[in-house]
Amino acid sequence: MFETLINILSALVSNMHYLTAMLLFLIGFHTMLTHSNLIKKIIGMNIMETSVFLFFISIGYVHNASAPILDDRVAAYVNPLPSALILTGIVVAVSLTAFSLAMVVMLYKHYGTICSDQIMRLREEEQ
């Protein structure tokens, strides 16, 4: 009984990054789709993206290896490829955020609200 609990726990710990990433992905996904507030949507989007980055980085992680910086003393490096990908991903995420925030400001100027439901209602009234 106790042993199985230990097993489960150690399995959880050894996969903790993956699990957290998945959990965060779901939270972000949920925030993005269900919240009607546009800024909340954007934050959700960021959470979702960082969770994927976390996932990717934890894949690249090699136990007991060091960062991919050339050093004579180090035997193993973690995989540098995901880093390059994620670096781009972060930048892209920031630019997406900036762009969508600019749009939020524009929408607020026009509709006076940042709630997508209300915007939809106002738009229908306009038409």
């Binding site: 992680y61 973690v78 995901p82 920031v94």
Partner: peptide, 18 residues
């Protein structure tokens, strides 16, 4: 966390960007 995962580049960038 990323720093802990031996991705200092990303940690730095995330700190600055995110």
């Amino acid at each position: 966390v990323w720093q802990q995962l031996e991705a200092p580049d990303l940690a730095l960038t995330e700190a600055a960007m995110g």
